[in-house]
């Protein structure tokens, strides 16, 4: 049946895929910005001496890491209305992605900060810097360098994860494929086109990650790609 592969149908549906591509792109960017904020807050809490701040962050990170994103997405999608919060699917989806990726980003930033050697901290202490000055002038500038490549890795994961939003009928790239597949009974055309679009995003981000690693002169450290 694949010999009937219809490029003409794909062309016909291209505007839909274009919209889906744009939707996936911008909802990923918004979610990633949210995830960065969540991650920075979690990481800051996790690095405090106070148990009262540390413990909630640790529990949150572990809970997110030990459960699937799809279950988290359904938790919000079916659960938020229960709390009287009836939000559009798109907002629920972005929220789920940001809350999920935030936990991973918190760990990436923490690894970056902890990778700075004890000697750097001591040099800062010895020259009379306060904790805030050491963080701002010595540790963070170095940590951000080693953090950028794995953060881009996390961005790749987030873009792929965003496909799950199609299951709560957010109009994005995978949803476009599903529509073509069900309207015309052409799953091959639908999903191969979808996959190709994701590959464009993947290779784009991947070369950006490789470029940034070379530019920053750091070896990429472990990420969840």
């Amino acid at each position: 049946m694949l010999e009937n592969f219809s490029f003409r149908t794909i062309v016909e549906y291209l505007p839909l895929f274009g919209q889906g591509f744009a939707a996936t792109l911008w909802l990923s960017i918004v979610s990633f910005a949210g995830a960065l904020a969540v991650g920075i807050i979690l990481c800051a809490m996790n690095l405090q001496r106070s148990r009262l701040l540390q413990l909630p962050a640790k529990i949150y990170i572990d809970a997110i890491r030990a459960t699937p994103l799809l279950a988290q997405l359904y938790f919000l999608y079916f659960g938020l209305p229960r709390l009287g919060l009836v939000l559009p699917e798109l907002v629920v989806g972005i929220l789920a992605l940001a809350l999920n990726s935030g936990a991973y980003i918190a760990e990436i930033i923490r690894a970056g900060i902890l990778s700075i050697s004890r000697g750097q901290v001591e040099a800062g202490i010895a020259s009379g810097m306060t904790y805030a000055q050491r963080m701002r002038l010595v540790i963070l500038p170095q940590a951000i360098r080693v953090t950028i490549p794995p953060l881009l890795g996390q961005a790749i994961v987030l873009v792929k994860d965003s496909a799950l939003l199609s299951l709560i009928s957010v109009a994005e790239l995978t949803r476009a494929g599903q529509l073509l597949a069900s309207d015309r009974f052409m799953p091959a055309e639908g999903f191969i086109t979808t996959a190709a679009c994701y590959l464009v995003l993947y290779y784009g981000l991947k070369s950006l990650a490789a470029f940034s690693a070379r530019w920053l002169g750091v070896r990429p450290i472990g990420s969840r790609t």
Binding site: G119, Q120, E122, A123, A126, S127, Q142
Partner: peptide
Amino acid sequence: IGFVFQAFNLYPH
């Protein structure tokens, strides 16, 4: 007080 370390500990950035 100036402190000179065995491993220099210059800021690499």
